[in-house]
Amino acid sequence: MENLIQVEGLTVERGGKRVLEGVTFAVPAGSLTGLIGPSGSGKTTVMRAVAGLQRHVDGLVRVAGFEAGSRAAREVVGYQPQRPAVYLDLTVRQNISYFAAMIGVDSAGVSEAIERVSLGAQAAERVERLSGGQVARVSLAIALLGSPQVLLLDEPTVGLDPVLRDELWRLFASLASLGTALVVSSHVMDEAERCERLLLLRDGRLLADAAPGTLKAETSTQDLDSAFLSLIRQGRP
């Protein structure tokens, strides 16, 4: 299978401190990968490096064969940052239409993105009047614009109600089945269960790269939280 994301020996320093060290993984087309780890483990830095937004990057980071951050790579990537990067003083539709115009997506694509995140009823409302979960969905809709081949979603389900979270995870799975390479970060283990494959990150190092079932079997545990804990303990001398 074609690898849409290829990361080898990714090391990032920030203020003299190593925040990522020798991270290596690849993500094929048509897959749903969970980037899992506690807050501060380096998930966002991995996302930013793949999106081409991170400074002081060592190692190889390629998207669809192109160097991360290059013009060709940027054409392929949809990125949802952790904080909702939207214009609070504009309406939902104005926000999405603007980003659509910037990447050459027409108004049919805008309506489709709004429908996908179930914000049809709020389309004419200003983002500042929406709830936190709704704002996060506006941000997600922008990342979905133009159906990019690679989707980097940084904690897209934080603060959402369970029904909506379920809907979004179904959406992610359906996008993967249509050929998109998705990397979704989360610090919640029960969400990790919904991924085909997990990248477990801790203190800037990749602790494991396996399917949830494999992880549990290998560590002889019943749930991913215990599996994670067992992996951390194994890693210690």
Binding site: G52, Y87, I103
Partner: peptide, 12 residues
């Protein structure tokens, strides 16, 4: 507010 970074992550 992060929108600049988001715009620059795309082809704009």
């Amino acid at each position: 507010n992060g929108t600049l970074e988001r715009l620059l992550a795309g082809p704009a």
